[in-house]
Amino acid sequence: MPDLCPHCQKEVALDAYRICPACNHYFPLTIAQRLELIVDAGSFVEMSAEMRSRNPISLAGYEDKLKENEKKSSLNDAVTIGSCTIEGDNAIIAIMSFAFMGGSMGSVVGEKITQAMIEGALRGWPVIIFTASGGARMQEGIFSLMQMAKTASAAALLEETKTPLFLVLTNPTTGGVTASFAMLGDVILAEPGAIIGFAGPRVIEGTIREKLPEGFQRSEFQQSKGFVDALVSRDKLKQTLSFLIKTHTRKEAAHG
């Protein structure tokens, strides 16, 4: 069954990579689709699958919104974490889902990202995070802001234990996620054409009162400004991550 490309408006037939053959637009991937492309078949073991959001500031309507999103996306919140192997090497993987409330980071996303990092530090396995997020989950008020500090402090622990942290930024990665763990990888990869930035384009346009230049805040822009190590096309992601895992193994000190 052909898909309609939202970018070039053509009806196209997609393979497992889900890249538009006509214009190179990257369609979003579900968790299952992403796992199929990245981890060794059957190796993924999910962690904290049952964790769900509460309503910390008792905001009217938030609980209904959560239920609605659970039903619509078949997910419990905006991130899925677990252990896996990639070309035979162990890793902890976290994959965000824009489909659940715009991938926004509330207590569950903050906690699960932190758990993934702590688990990596304990097992000495590299941590790989795929981001896709509109930013903080405003419905959780100050608690959503605090998740930025929480995830960044977990990244500090990875640094202290010399555990590798690899980021793969996908479309879009903005707001509080950009200003916390997304920018703290030892290596930061991005899918081509992804929007990556802190402030939203409309907010910036409002500040400078002019239109933003072409390509502003895209992955290519972020690479040229020095904030992304490499743009990697989807079909090369697994082998790139495998290369990174193999080149970031910490050698035990000889005198250990």
Binding site: M148, E160, S180, A182, L184, K225, F227
Partner: peptide
């Protein structure tokens, strides 16, 4: 809040804040 300007994005306002959160926490 942080300044939502063109230059701020070009010079990595997100990265700058992220680094502070990480370093201040330890």
């Amino acid at each position: 809040g942080a300044y939502p300007g063109l230059g701020a994005e070009e010079r990595g306002i997100g990265q700058a804040i992220a680094e502070n959160l990480k370093v201040f926490s330890t």
